[in-house]
Simulated assay, not measured.
Amino acid sequence: MTEPAQEPPFLQDPYAPYAAMRSACPVQSKPVDSGGRPGCLVIGYAEAREALADARLSKDTAAFFDGRGSRRRLHPAVSRSMLASDPPRHTRLRKLVTRAFTTGAVAELRPFIARVTDELLERWSPGERFDFVAGLAVPLPVIVICELLGVPESDRADVRRWSAALFSAGEPDVVDSASYSMAGYMTDLITDKRLHPGDSLLDRLIAARSGDERLSEDELVSLAVLLLVAGHETTTHFLGNAVLALLQHPDALGRLRENPDEIPAALDELLRFDPPVSTATFRFSTEALTLGGVEIPAGVPVQVALGAANRDPERFPAPDLLDLDRDATSHVAFGHGIHRCVGAPLARAEGEIALRAVLHRFPGIRLAVPPERLEWRRTRLVRGLASLPVLA
């Protein structure tokens, strides 16, 4: 079998270029689209935390770009989601979904997550070669979030395909088309659930009818799409990146294999080291502000490079070292502020359960190809492997 060609250097390792940029300035000018529209990229840790929590940086980007002649044609369920909104709308929508991802709610899901993980891993035997991404990192979070939302098993392959397309880099028509496919599917699923109600999270959102819990039809579809996509895409990359990091650091791998109870604490360092979301979604300045000593006028798009911030030596000494003894709880892999990832408890549970199972079942797991031959997805915003060949 022919191995994939060597990936471009930035896909292989974006952290060295980020370090060079950060040494010059923690806030960099950067075009935000192919037309060269000016924007800012935040790569310093302190500046990232400040930007992520600054109310002057609005997330209502649909209104911003629509007013400037954007040629993008994303479905409103994607372009005007909870993620792309400000208070009070964001506060109301987030309150509705937060209860599904509390520590207690996720604890109830853990037996199901463990069972699915075991069923997926049973397909391979020790010493056998398999693709960790295709074999576990993709299907596990897809199955979990689809089960939570009540998406039928027969539809999950389509859901995964549309979701992957939504993050395609350099293919706006593909992204726009996928947004309509996903929104259309969720509209139909909601219609079906009204006729045949169940007890899924989506059923509960449909049933919300009073006070702040009342959702418009557009809000309902938008929340469903966001939960479905965000509920598995980032976790897939989290799992792949974490396992790769451990395979490239045998001492850390051996330590967690021998001491699996350390895995929950190790998740923060793994998330810091190579987070699944490399760059947060757009914000824009509603008024002039200063960030990292850089003057940002009103009306400028701003993106925060979460991966770069997590490797800032001012906050994390020797940041390119995977150090399981490091206190990495202040990482920004899940964001920061009011938009911090609502599904973080679920992602952590899936990560812990998956790592425990993999290290227990395959204690000798190792890379099946040289690291430079690994294939990375060419995506917008997220950072993850297209495949991870391993010898179990």
Rank of each mutant, 00 (worst) to 15 (best):
Asp212Val: 11
Arg194Ser: 01
Pro250Asp: 09
Val32Arg: 04
His336Leu: 12
Val277Ala: 14
Arg129Met: 06
Phe130Tyr: 13
Asp251Phe: 00
Tyr18Val: 08
Gly35Arg: 15
Ser85Val: 05
Arg89Ser: 12
Pro197Ala: 02
Met1Ile: 07
Glu262Ile: 04
Arg255Phe: 10
Thr281Cys: 03
Ile365Tyr: 00
Glu217Ser: 13
Pro250Ile: 11
Val133Met: 14
Gln248Arg: 15
Thr290Pro: 00
Asp118Glu: 15
Arg68Met: 09
Leu391Gln: 14
Arg89His: 13
Pro264Phe: 05
Glu213Asn: 13
Cys341Asp: 05
Asp86Pro: 01
Gln6Thr: 15
Thr91Arg: 14
Ile190Asn: 02
Gly337His: 06
Leu52Cys: 10
Val174Tyr: 00
Ala137His: 05
Asp118Leu: 10
Val159Lys: 06
Leu223Ile: 14
Phe64Leu: 06
Ser177Ala: 15
Gly184Glu: 03
Arg160Gly: 03
Gly335Ala: 08
Cys341Pro: 05
His232Ser: 02
Pro371Ser: 02
Gly170Ala: 08
Ser154Asn: 12
Val142Leu: 13
Ala107Tyr: 03
Tyr18Thr: 07
Leu324Tyr: 01
Ala48Thr: 10
Asp192Gly: 11
His339Leu: 01
Leu136Gly: 03
Pro276Leu: 02
Glu262Gln: 14
Gly231Tyr: 11
Leu291Tyr: 05
